[in-house]
Write a protein that binds this DNA or RNA. Structure first.
Lengths: 145, 145
DNA sequence: TCAACAGTTTAGAATTATTATAATGTAGAT
DNA sequence: ATCTACATTATAATAATTCTAAACTGTTGA
């Protein structure tokens, strides 16, 4: 979703009614320069900090999934216990910092194209994504036990 | 864990008491030619099909996590709603069939080495893993809506 | 303009996956 | 055989997410 655009019009174009909840969430998620990674919990916290009125948890889930279905958010799986979403919906790679649980987007220059030599009959490749897990050097010394 | 080995001895070597629950789970998980992907749910179902006595759900979780901590199982994140485990604990790549939710291991010949050009200061790369999502061709045609 | 309708929001209940608890059971050492 | 620390168990607790059904609100068109 374009930055600084009229979210009301944009939502209408997508066939989503521009309710105040949705417009607010658009502003929080898409009025940004850089791509943004968040969990539902992060988002709920952000909303309650920025608004007087609360948005119901069910609505946050509904809206995030609506935006995801329309292709404006993308779910990223790193841990099974947390669900991350990303405003960068292109197929792209990630670094994941195991010390801080921080997720960092890569751009095309960071990782060379991945050459897949296997193919599965009748199946088509939908996406190819690389996850690079990093951590501070000393933290990962083998423990003597 | 080696195939067809004496799991009682093997467990003892790891500092895990060879209880009948653990031995049974070893047999189910590690007495295989091919690497094996499963969810806790799959495993519970397998156990109840193969044994007269049940193993408590808590024990299944405890034991899977014990094996994981000892490095004999590896957790794979694909969906946030399911936690997959893999008896192949090496760093390796996967195909994920979105139609069947099936996970398929790659070997070194399936995907060329990934060339990472970015590096993060003070951080060391722990793993580089590729996830290739596939689905049947027609299922993924763009819907006209 | 406004009624009507369909899509939305909401609080709270339900569901699902996982972890914690505390009592009971058991392997291994003495 | 007995003891003790570790394991198992049923159940409760927690957490994340989805469902439900009632109330609410954009939008359409008379």
């Amino acid at each position: 979703m374009a930055k600084n655009c009229n979210f009301i019009e944009k939502l209408r174009e997508l066939g989503l009614r521009p309710t105040k909840q949705r417009v607010k969430m658009c502003e929080l998620l898409f009025n940004r320069e850089k791509t943004f990674h968040f969990t539902i919990n992060d988002l709920v916290k952000m909303i309650s900090e920025e608004m007087n009125e609360k948005i119901s948890l069910a609505t946050v889930y509904n809206t995030v999934h609506a935006f995801e279905k329309k292709g404006y958010l993308k779910e990223i799986s790193i841990n099974s216990d947390k669900s991350y979403f990303d405003t960068n919906t292109s197929v792209h790679h990630h670094f994941y910092d195991e010390d801080t649980n921080e997720l960092i987007d890569c751009d095309e220059n960071d990782i060379d194209p991945v050459n897949i030599k296997k193919n599965i009959t009748g199946k088509k490749i939908n996406s190819v994504e690389v996850l690079v897990k990093v951590a501070s050097d000393n933290q990962n010394q083998k423990k003597f036990n």
